[in-house]
Design a protein around this nucleic acid. Structure first.
Length: 290
DNA sequence: GCCT
DNA sequence: CAGTACG
DNA sequence: AGGCCGCTACTG
């Protein structure tokens, strides 16, 4: 059975999760995730490239080491380094970092303090109210964990662009009519016109951000408020689709639109470019370095 | 881990 | 503050 | 050898 780019990407992601929980160097962890992303967006089958004897290190984020690992996976169907790392941990533990809100540190805490080794364990502990008592956790986090676990079973939650548009349009109108709101821009992958979008990223200009995020959190279609502060709110609307609202001052609109439109990788490249010029770039503007 |  | 998340 | 995005934002 042929190994496809997606399979290798998945193996690399799993490796990243395991190393993450083990407390490995975060940059090494990121390297695996980066390579996984490269493979997934690659228009060609790496299996074919291996068969043709092509140089895999030409792929961005793939160096000597990962090129060898790709070849190993393609030719043998095994990924020994992953199997080795997995032998150090309970097999289900690394899955926990895929739950939004749980990173490596919290997963370790769950394991060490409550002996949680799997999503199933976590569900039971959360239902019993044991998670909320842990340091760094709270009732809110515990409730969110249970919701996220319930969502794991659901099928892919990305929406086709046209379906996302049907959610975005009424929200846009609603925000435009919101007191104090100037511009409203649906950014993110929606603005990039990707075939599917995983969430909605809406940028708004207003002087009083807290007022806007507060109002938005009470929108009739909002079913959950994941977070809400003075400049940002993350909510879910009917059906569980996530919407991120970001509020900035009018004078930061351009920079914020650039940032919020992404992609993430594009933003990072732009920020690196700024650094090389002695500048710094963020969602509020382009500034002179120190 | 990759990159310069 | 640390941890996590957002593009 | 040494940096790796952000004077990023929100939660506990």
């Amino acid at each position: 059975m042929a190994v496809h780019n997606r399979d290798i990407a998945e193996a690399f992601r799993r490796m990243a999760d395991v190393l993450d929980v083990e407390g490995e160097n975060p940059f090494r962890v990121r390297a695996y995730r980066q390579a996984a992303a490269t493979l997934e967006s690659l228009p060609r089958d790496v299996g074919d490239m291996v068969a043709a004897g092509e140089d895999l290190t030409r792929l961005p984020g793939v160096g000597e080491d990962l090129a060898n690992k790709i070849r190993e996976i393609v030719t043998t169907g095994h990924f020994r380094a992953l199997e080795e790392e997995l032998s150090h941990l309970p097999p289900g533990l690394a899955d926990l970092v895929r739950i939004p809100g749980l990173g490596p540190k919290r997963v370790r805490a769950l394991y060490q303090l409550l002996g949680i080794e799997s999503i199933e364990d976590l569900k039971k502990a959360a239902e019993a109210g044991e998670v909320a008592n842990l340091p760094g956790f709270g009732a809110r986090t515990e409730a969110r964990i249970l919701e996220e676990i319930a969502r794991l079973g659901a099928t892919e939650r990305r929406l086709r662009l046209i379906d996302a548009e049907h959610i975005a349009n009424p929200l846009t109108s609603w925000l435009e009519a919101c007191p104090g709101v100037g511009r409203v821009l649906v950014a993110g992958s929606f603005r990039r016109r990707k075939e599917t979008v995983g969430d909605l990223d809406i940028l708004v200009t207003a002087a009083d951000g807290a007022d806007v995020t507060r109002r938005f959190s009470k929108h009739p279609d909002v079913t959950e408020v994941l977070s809400a502060g003075p400049t940002r709110a993350t909510v879910r609307v009917g059906g569980g689709f996530q919407v991120d609202l970001r509020v900035v001052d009018e004078n930061a609109y351009g920079s914020a639109a650039l940032y919020f439109t992404g992609s993430k990788a594009h933003n990072i490249e732009l920020r690196k470019l700024a650094i090389r010029h002695g500048w710094k770039l963020n969602e509020y503007g382009l500034f002179a370095g120190e």
